[in-house]
Amino acid sequence: MAKPRYWSVTEGPLVLPAVLLFTAVYLYPLSRLVAWSFFTPTLSLQHYRALLAEPAYVTAFINTVTLSVSVTATTLVLGYPVAYLMTTLSPRARAVVLACVLVPFWTSILVRTFAWMVLLGRNGLINGALIALGLVTTPVALIHNAVGVQIGMVHVLLPLMILPLYSVMVRIDAAWLRAARSLGAQPRQVFLHVFLPLSLPGIGAGCALVFLSSIGFFVTPALLGGPKQITIAMLIDLMINDLLNWGFGAALALMLLIVVTVLFALFQRALRLDRVWGGAV
């Protein structure tokens, strides 16, 4: 069988603007980053050696990936039912739910993070209510730890999960579900064997978007987290902005890129995401 052709004389020039843009805003800066990590001050592997020699940096990588995985899982668990609900609503009710999902999405991350500080703080609304109800006697630590970061990041990233899920679910033909029911499947079986597999592309896209966004998160962990939530992004900021150690900062950034690429490849294989991207990846 002949291989499908992705490139032809007539179509070639059409992708040129995209290629130029991609080269200018992505490939060129990335090549500078690679150069810094190897050539500052002279050609050597010193930055990578320093990175691997210190357990703290490895720990920060593990912290960052663990945080991103747990945020992705939480947004999936919370977002899936919301996306499903949206497919069952009347157009008007759906517009309301969609607005509830999108309005926070358009609000500045900083504002939302500060709002959580007000709500979750020692003297915040939630602790105030808990104490007033007699459920606790001293304030519960809800921020400056893993709980706070988790809440803040899930809130920020939830729309990135709900929107792709919804766009896939809405295209699932109800006839498939009816067919399964008429063949005697219980609702649970209809969901597990028909709906869930058909929504898989949405799960894949949502998880990819949320995971990739949380890997580079800076503001929310910095404000709502404690020492255990120090992410690679925060260390890169320290190296680039405060210490002007661009060589080491670049090495951290590239290492993060490699880790993410490997994880993403594994994730793609596990979820058969090639179907989502149409086999072009």
Binding site: E54, P55, A56, Y57, T59, A60, N63, P227, K228, I230, L235, L238, D242, L243, N245
Partner: peptide
């Protein structure tokens, strides 16, 4: 300054 600030960040992560 460079050495101690880097060390401090590591102390924070591992401590």
């Amino acid at each position: 300054r460079e050495r101690e600030t880097e060390k401090f960040a590591r102390w924070m992560v591992t401590g």
